[in-house]
């Protein structure tokens, strides 16, 4: 089989017309200035070969190109070399990465691993308290503007005194504000936000004491600041890894952060219970608190959840012990419930 072909030698864009003949080993190219033999294994498809279409081939060892416009050529060549049905991986300029590239790759990877695994704890530990407080205040301002905050002095004093009793050595700034759902949040710099909805939801002072103890445990471990640094780093990383695909990148951040977040939350639950014990506060109804929470807000579960499942938290909080005192007397409890409802 032979056809007329158009050949470019890869050194100049000048085209030469030549005869192309297919044999058992490959293609014979014969022109006035060109005489080459391309073995089948050296031939690459610049564009995948398709019946009736011009054939565009290249040579693996050079930049030479060959075009056969005859519509019958594609089928005949595919019979010899079926791989030409697929576009070849054209050799790239940077096909062989130098040693320097791999060293830089290693350093870059190490830097990014640092961001995720080691960096957050280290950075959070080194950050001055005044900086952490500034981040906490700013977050507090965004999360709960002044207009949403509870200003009842008596109620705030009750909550702050309870926090001080649970963690006497910690410097805490506690605020109560509307967050739209029963919740509490620990923020960098010892800032804690208790929601009005949580105050309304709680049936006993023990429940409020447990919620505060949980958030105080987060503060003891510097979890809010570590989490802030980690998520910020992961957001940069996700942008890098996805080339800026926002929604997918955010899903990646949630998925990557969730297991660590669940561990931190479980630790804050158990440390919170220990804190209640240490302060001699009765804590035998926390499991029912979680069951009511599940009934109100739905089950928290799944691989992407930031907290352990509500059922697991209820099981971990189950105790028959009646030891300890109530965290608040009736008057204080009344002041809190009425003042920041």
């Amino acid at each position: 089989m032979s056809w007329s072909g158009v050949y470019a030698d890869g050194i100049s864009p000048r085209l030469q017309q030549l005869d192309v003949e297919a044999d058992f080993d490959g293609l014979q190219l014969r022109g006035e200035a060109t005489r080459e033999h391309w073995r089948w294994s050296d031939i690459l498809a610049v564009v995948p070969l398709a019946s009736g279409e011009p054939v565009r081939l290249g040579h693996r060892a050079s930049a030479a190109r060959l075009r056969i416009d005859d519509p019958t050529a594609a089928v005949a060549l595919l019979a010899h070399a079926p791989s030409l049905q697929r576009a070849h991986r054209v050799r790239s300029v940077g096909r062989r990465f130098s040693k320097g590239i791999w060293i830089r790759f290693g350093l870059a990877t190490a830097a990014l691993v640092f961001v995720i695994a080691i960096g957050p704890d280290m950075i959070a530990g080194l950050m001055p308290q005044s900086w952490a407080a500034r981040i906490g205040d700013e977050t507090l301002r965004v999360l709960a503007p002044e207009s949403k905050r509870c200003t009842d002095e008596a109620a705030l004093r009750v909550a702050r005194d309870l926090a001080a009793r649970l963690a006497p050595t910690q410097t805490i700034r506690l605020e109560i504000a509307s967050l739209g759902q029963p919740n509490a949040v620990a923020l960098p710099g010892g800032r804690i936000m208790l929601s009005r909805e949580m105050v309304a939801f709680a049936r006993t002072p023990q429940e409020i004491a447990f919620v505060l103890a949980h958030e105080l445990a987060h503060e003891q471990h510097n979890d809010p600041l570590t989490g802030f640094v980690r998520v910020s780093g992961m957001q940069v990383l996700s942008r890098v890894m996805t080339g800026g695909s926002g929604m997918l990148g955010n899903a990646g951040v949630v998925a990557a952060n969730a297991p660590m977040s669940r561990r931190v939350e479980a630790r804050a639950d158990s440390d919170g219970m220990r804190m209640l014990e240490a302060a001699n506060i009765r804590h035998n109804e926390i499991d029912s608190f979680w069951r009511r929470m599940e009934a109100q807000t739905g089950a928290s579960n799944g691989y992407l959840a930031s907290h352990p499942s509500t059922a697991a938290r209820a099981r971990a909080a189950t105790t028959d012990s009646q030891d300890g005192e109530p965290p608040l007397d009736a008057a204080a409890w009344d002041a809190l419930k009425k003042g920041c409802r």
Binding site: S92, L107, L237
Partner: peptide, 18 residues
């Protein structure tokens, strides 16, 4: 190649963005 783009982005992340 995709790997070239990926490495380029990785370098920029470590050397510039971070």
């Amino acid at each position: 190649r995709g790997i070239e783009l990926f490495l380029g982005m990785l370098f920029v992340a470590a050397a510039v963005l971070l």
